[in-house]
Design a protein around this nucleic acid. Structure first.
Length: 898
RNA sequence: GGGAGCUUAGCUCAGCUGGUUCAGAGCAUCUGCCUUACAAGCAGAGGGUCACUGGUUCGAACCCAGUAGCUCCCA
């Protein structure tokens, strides 16, 4: 392999990805090894790769690759989600462009188009993930509408229905008039919106509805008084939705409201249409909000609906599914609800019943998918009872069988699960699994796996029934109703609950996903896991943050503040981007992404490349003896120490910390210290032992780096430097080095040696001595450390021409302390005694202060009584060290006679 | 309105059971170096009242209470 000056990712990435594929390294089949399983959070078929996916899948790939390198049978199952609302919207839009309207199509025709669309665009994200290096077992790729997965959805629907956990009921749902579907509460985004509060007068029965009769013309600006009975002919209500007055079923007042006693038992007329409605009493009404008179519109407000139920009020629905007014409104029929609002305001004004309009801020729900204002709507829907299933799902998390990372999400999870509401699983769409309910002419229904079975069921009720008597429910189930089965259904665990795959891979190990769908998806998977397998679906849930831009804004297409991940990969290399993502991604916290992190990542790749270039350039002279024994031993120990730290961080899912440990191990310890320690002089050969040790180190470093930087490491792995490799001897399947013993004494002493080197470099800097000018160095070792063993290292790194141990201080030399050991550099120039005195006195002062605080602790009876013995020991050591240093400083001060 | 969380260097974040010479890391900044692996580099340096106020403790970035600011979830 010829070595380029810099690392060029493009030349390696495609090559190795296809090599891995060819050799089936991503593939997993059950065997004797311990499994390690991740199921991918299936991306929507409508999506393209965004930064959230990049983060999420980088993390999963790091975990999977590491597991593989720890000898586990790693299986990462990829797939996609059919995303009924979003996909149907895309297909409808596509058809519209072709001049086709969904209304003109049969269900079957529409679905043909939808599948066509899915085949064409549905796999885009998965293809893009390959660019990132994702080591998924692609042979296992699943789609939530695959036959077996869909069958599982239908089967579980039937199972839950039979168990009484699925029921049909009228509910107030969040209706998206643009998507023409119900959406769940979680898909409604609430925003504070400036609205208008309309004050409208309703005339009271037996009072003449003569316009302007009681008009004072000076309605009070205080709405608390504006509806007062000093205007006996009418009452005033305040509403943000004047277009719904035609759907009013009553006016409600608080029975304790003394202002309105005269209205008890009365009837009033709805303006414009003059329909008569009763005044009802309910203490639900807050007396001091608005006018104290509440218009009750059961069809268009959840609270009003419940109020209506209590008072047996009729439900008058004046809206069509597309948000326009229907004939029940009597006026403005066919107008859109917002147009109608403006028009009715004018009509009310003209009729003289619009008392005033105020600005008003309130929360309005918007559809996450279409951004349309959500319309509360009564509808017959299928529901799944949650209470019973939530309990065990909560327990799994509370008792630690499932760990949420970071732990803070346990609180959120508990709060949700303790206040869980039934799950509306109907969606008024075609793309998805059609609800397996067939309606009979009597209005009854049967639940069955297919039309034939449904007919059989129906014939039990009435043998006369034929297929023509049955109509299947038009709706499909919520997409989450299929994705909650994902960890089971990808292994075909419903149809074949005892198959080899599910028995081996389930429960899966880690799930990596966003906190936004903790309830939507994670909680429901746990419920499904318990319900259908009596077991958790995964052990650990790693919750990633939201990727934001530098200004803290969520990255989104609308804002255009998200870089294109593929552009980033092209620019920085997949390895660079992976490192960049992880550098700024603490678990569960949002990350402020900036391209500079990727730059740092590619810089790191380049650093490794160049270190490799150095080692590769060495000539070996077999006759040389090894002068680097200590350096080699030090790095071997340092490597083991770093492995321990990395392992600990992985165990706690602190991936960005583990990466930083690796980064520093490679850059600082290996490149900046070790290689500099052993590097032969230019065009000089290296001895065989050092060469062999260094190559071994390098190979181990590649292994540790591989999960983070798979492409670069695989590329270097195959260099001839490491000798002949068989076709399947690849970094991706190499086993991580075992952690060896750590000689902490050697590590500590080497830290001191590094301190000595830094001190000398510093001295050169302050005294303006060139790096090229050799210096002499003498040590008076008070600690007993044998610096002789480090001679080669110190002379090398600090350009020392002579290094000797001495028993006495050296007068007139530059000196410094490393721990309690004294170092001297004789220097021709006179040492400035005054400056030296100042320096020493400053140090002395600091040490005295420090010693004082230590002594204060040691002299404190309560400290001695309460502190743990090891703490006291540490304090005593601090004291001894400080005293030793002080003695040396005092001696030096005395010598200078200051 | 109810709940959860956050605030440590210019930026992004560590700091685990309160106790090392504990105030850290990376990036950025500044200074000096084109020293034959790397200027995408090397060597060195500066930078913080741990949001604020009080309390507990022998001892607080860490525990408790309050205040301010920010974020998220639910209504």
């Amino acid at each position: 392999m010829s070595i380029a000056k810099t690392y060029i990712p493009k030349e390696t990435e495609e090559k190795w990805y296809s090599y891995w594929l060819q050799h089936g390294f991503f593939k997993s089949v059950p065997d004797e090894r311990e499994p390690y399983t991740i199921v991918i959070p299936p991306p929507n078929v409508t999506g393209v790769l965004h930064m959230g996916h990049m983060l999420n899948n980088t993390i999963q790939d790091v975990l999977v690759r590491r597991a593989r390198m720890k000898g586990k049978n790693a299986c990462w199952v990829p797939g996609t989600d059919h995303a009924s609302i979003a996909t149907e919207a895309k297909v409808v839009a596509m058809l519209k462009e072709r001049g086709i309207s969904k209304k003109d199509l049969t269900r079957e025709e529409f679905l043909t188009y939808a599948w066509e669309w899915k085949e064409k665009y549905g796999g885009i994200i998965l293809e893009q993930l390959k660019k990132l290096g994702a080591s998924c077992d692609w042979d296992r790729t699943k789609f939530t509408m695959d036959e077996s997965l869909s069958e599982a959805v239908i089967d579980t629907f039937i199972h839950l229905y039979k168990k009484g956990l699925i029921y049909r009921g009228i509910r107030m749902i969040n209706w998206d008039p643009q998507g023409k579907t119900a959406v769940s509460d979680e898909e409604v985004i609430r925003k504070e919106v400036n609205q208008k509060l309309y004050y409208i007068r309703y005339f009271v029965q037996s009072e003449s509805p003569e316009v302007g009769k009681s008009e004072s013309g000076e309605a009070s600006s205080d709405f608390r008084t504006s509806g007062l009975p000093d205007s006996p002919g009418f009452l005033t209500i305040a509403t943000t939705r004047p277009e719904t007055i035609m759907a009013d079923a009553a006016i409600c007042i608080n029975p304790n409201d003394e202002r309105y006693l005269h209205l008890h038992g009365k009837k009033v007329y709805i303006p414009l249409i003059n329909r008569e409605i009763p005044v009802i009493l309910d203490d639900y009404v807050t007396m001091d909000f608005g006018t104290g008179c509440l218009k009750v519109t059961p069809a268009h407000d959840l609270n009003d609906y419940e109020l209506g139920q209590r008072h047996n009020l009729p439900v008058i629905d004046i809206l069509n599914d597309d948000g326009t007014l229907n004939e029940k409104a009597q006026i403005l029929v066919g107008e859109d609800r917002f147009a109608a609002r403006k028009k009715i305001a004018v009509l009310l004004e003209e009729a003289g019943v619009l008392e005033k309009v105020e600005e008003y801020k309130s929360q309005v729900g918007f559809s996450e998918r279409t951004n349309a204002v959500i319309e509360p709507k009564l509808s017959m829907q299928w529901f799944c009872k949650m209470g019973e299933m939530a309990k065990p799902a909560l327990d799994y998390v509370l008792n630690g069988e499932i760990k949420l990372i970071p732990e803070k999400f346990v609180n959120t999870y508990r709060h949700w699960m303790e206040n869980v509401r039934d799950w509306n699983i109907s969606r008024q769409l075609w793309w998805g699994q059609q609800i397996p309910a067939w309606y009979l002419p009597t209005g009854e229904f049967v639940i069955a796996k297919n039309a034939e079975e449904a007919l059989k069921e129906a014939q039990l009720k009435n043998p006369e029934y034929t297929a023509a008597n049955l109509t299947q429910d038009e709706d499909v189930v919520d997409t989450w109703f299929s994705s909650w089965l994902w960890p089971i259904s990808v292994f075909d665990g419903f149809k074949d609950p005892d198959n080899a795959d599910i028995n081996y891979y389930y429960p899966t190990n880690d799930l990596v996903t966003a906190p936004e769908i903790l309830f939507f998806w994670v909680a429901r998977m746990i419920m499904a896991g318990h319900e259908f397998r009596g077991e958790v679906p995964f052990r650990n849930v790693y919750l990633t943050g939201i990727v934001r831009d530098k200004q803290g804004r969520k990255m989104s297409k609308q804002l255009g503040n998200s870089p294109d991940p593929l552009d980033l990969i092209a620019q920085y290399g997949a390895d660079g981007v992976r490192v960049g993502m992880l550098l700024c991604s603490p678990a569960g916290n949002d990350l402020m992404f900036d391209e500079s992190y990727c730059k740092q990542g590619s810089g790191f790749a380049n650093k490794i490349w160049n270190a490799f270039k150095l080692v590769k350039g060495w000539e070996v002279d077999e006759s040389l003896s090894n002068p680097n024994g200590v350096a080699i031993e030090w790095f071997a120990n340092r490597f083991n120490q770093a492995l321990t730290e990395i392992e600990a961080n992985f165990a706690q899912y602190r991936l960005s910390e583990a990466l930083m440990d690796t980064y520093k191990l490679v850059w600082d310890d290996f490149c900046a210290w070790y290689l500099e320690m052993i590097k032969p002089a230019y065009q000089h050969p290296i001895d065989k032992a050092t060469y062999a040790a260094t190559i071994q180190f390098f190979e181990n470093i590649l292994k540790v780096l591989h999960p983070f930087m798979p492409f670069l490491t695989e590329e270097l792995w195959h260099d001839e430097l490491f000798g002949e490799r068989s076709e399947t001897d690849c970094c991706i399947v190499a086993q991580l080095p075992a952690i060896g013993e750590i000689n902490s004494r050697l590590l500590n002493e080497t830290e001191l040696v590094k301190d000595v080197v830094t001190n000398i470099r510093n001295t050169r800097k302050t005294k303006q001595i060139s790096d090229k000018e050799p210096l002499e160095l003498f040590v008076k070792s008070n600690s007993g450390i044998n610096y002789g063993q480090f001679e080669a290292i110190i002379t090398r790194l600090a350009n020392i021409s002579k290094f000797e141990s001495v028993a006495d201080k050296i007068e007139g030399a530059i000196n410094f302390l490393a721990s309690t050991d004294e170092f001297y550099i004789p220097f021709s120039e006179e040492i400035d005694p005054v400056a030296e005195c100042v320096k020493l006195k400053k140090e002395q002062e600091y040490l005295l202060g420090f010693l004082k605080s230590v002594n204060a602790k040691l002299g404190n009876e309560r400290f001695m009584a309460n502190a743990k013995p090891e703490i006291i020991e540490v304090e005593q050591k601090k004291k001894a060290d400080a005293e030793a240093k002080l003695t040396i400083i005092e001696e030096n001060l005395a010598a200078l006679a200051c």
